[in-house]
Computed example of a mutant assay.
Amino acid sequence: MTADREESAMTVQDIAYTELYTDDHAGAVDQFSSALGFLPVAESRDDTSTSTLLRQGDVKIVVTSGDAVAPFVDRHGAGIADIALSCDDVTATYTAALAAGATVAPKRFGVPAMAGFGEVVHSLVPTTATAPDARPAGRRWIALPPDAPGTEGPARLLDHVAICLPGGTLDEYADRYTATLGLTRYSSAYVAVGEQGMDSIVVRSGSGRVIFTLVAPDPAKQPGQLDRFLERNVGPGVQHLAFLVDDIITAVGDYGQRGVEFLTTPASYYDALADRLPAKAGHVDRLRGAQVLADIDEWGYLLQRFTRSPYERNTLFFELIQRQGSRGFGSANIRALYEAVERDRLTTP
C-alpha cells in the first residue's frame, strides 16, 4: 500500500449518521418527521433502549431513548451524543487515532468509538454505512412501513456540524482532530459584539464531507450566548446541525408551514445588504421576506437561515444552508447569527 493510500485508509470520509439522545422519544421523532421533513425508516428495541432511524436526502439521524441513555439526558438534556464517522478502514483509522492520543469511548452495539468532546463520541463505521439503505450496525432494526406518516423535506445532506466548546480550548480540539482523524484546519474567525466575543475554527476532512465548525466564547470578554449554552448543556456539545438545500427560500417556506420556528433578522441587515453584496441587490426583497442571510467568498454566495431550538434546555438548533459556489461559512453572517441568538436569549423567558 502506498503512503497516500495508507493516509487515506486512516482518515474519515463522511458523517454516516448523528444520534440524538432524548427522554421524549415520540416527541423527538415527530419533530424530525413532521416539522423537519425526515422519514422514519426503521426502529430498533432492546431491554435498555429504543431507537428510530430517520432519513432525508443523504442525512441520517437516529433518535434514541431509554435507560441506556438516561444518564446523558439527565446531565445535558436532549442532544446529539454520537457523530458517527465512516472510514475506508475502520481498524486502521481507530488504531491510528488511539496512537495519536484519542481516548477510547465505550462501545455500543459492538461498534468501536472514540471520545469527541464532552460526552459526545464518534463511532467509527465502514464507508458502506453511508449507503442509502444502510442502518447502524449492531442493532436489530425492523423496517417501518413505507406509508409511515410524513413527507420528505428539501434537505440533501449534512453540510456541517457546529460544536460549542469552552473558551480557550479551540486550538486544543482543532489539533486533536487534526492528529487523530486527519482533519485539517480550513478557516478561522473572531467576532466581537459589544462586550462579548467568540472564536471559531473550521476543520474538515480531505473528502470535504466531514466539516466541524468549532466555536467558543472569548474568556476575556463578558459572558454571552455561548457561555449560556455551555451552562445549559453542562459542558461542550453540538450547537447546531446544518442541512444543505437547493433553494433556501422555498425550503424556509416549506419548513415554516411544517411549524418550524426561525430566528429573526433585524431590518437593518437587509437595508445594508444591497451595498455589501451589489450582485444580490435585486434579490434583497425576497431574502428579506424569507429572513435569509447572505454572504460571499472568493468562490461564490452563501445563503443561510437558523431555527430556534425545539428542546427544553434551548441548546441544539438547526440551520438551512444553500451554496451558490461558496465554500466558506459566512464570516459576516457569524455576527448576524450571534446577534440573532443573543436577541432570542434576551427575549425568551
Score class of each variant (00 low, 15 high):
Ala267Ile: 07
Thr265Pro: 01
Pro40Trp: 05
Phe109Lys: 11
Leu39Gly: 04
Lys60Gln: 12
Pro266Trp: 01
Val191Phe: 02
Asn333Tyr: 09
Gly27Cys: 11
Leu181His: 07
Val111Glu: 15
Val193Ile: 13
Ala3Met: 11
Ser33Trp: 01
Arg313Lys: 10
Gly167Pro: 05
Val41Pro: 15
Ala267Gln: 11
Met10Ser: 14
Ala102Ser: 14
Ala174Asn: 07
Gln225Ser: 05
Pro349Tyr: 04
Val161Trp: 01
Leu54Glu: 04
Thr130Pro: 01
Asp227Pro: 08
Gly153Lys: 00
Thr307Leu: 08
Arg323Gly: 09
Asp46Arg: 00
Val62Trp: 11
Glu152Leu: 10
Arg5Gly: 00
His240Phe: 03
Glu43Ser: 14
Val202Lys: 03
Leu158Pro: 02
Leu157Cys: 14
Thr151Asn: 10
Ala70Tyr: 06
Asp275Pro: 01
Arg258Thr: 02
Lys280Phe: 15
Ser49Val: 04
Pro149Ser: 06
Asn333Pro: 09
Thr48His: 14
Tyr269Asn: 04
Phe262Asn: 08
Leu85Asp: 00
Pro236Met: 02
Gly66Ala: 02
Glu231Ala: 14
Asp275Phe: 04
Arg204His: 10
Tyr311Gln: 04
Gly138Glu: 13
Ala81Glu: 09
Arg204Ile: 11
Asp227Ile: 05
Asp218Ala: 02
Leu302Val: 00
Gly110Gln: 13
Leu183Phe: 08
Asp199Asn: 12
Thr93Gly: 03
Tyr17Trp: 11
Ser44Arg: 03
Gly167Ser: 10
Pro136Ser: 07
Asp82Leu: 00
Ile15Pro: 03
Ala28Phe: 02
Pro349Cys: 08
Glu19Met: 10
Arg305Gln: 11
Phe32Ala: 01
Gln304Lys: 08
Val210Thr: 07
Ala26Gly: 13
Leu157Lys: 14
Gly194Phe: 00
Thr93Trp: 07
Ser65Tyr: 03
Val161Phe: 03
Ser268Asn: 07
Gln56Thr: 07
Gln291Leu: 07
Glu319Lys: 03
Cys87Arg: 06
Thr18Trp: 03
Leu165Thr: 02
Gly101His: 02
Lys107His: 12
Ala274Asp: 01
Ala179Gly: 02
Leu183Tyr: 09
Thr184Tyr: 15
Met10Gln: 10
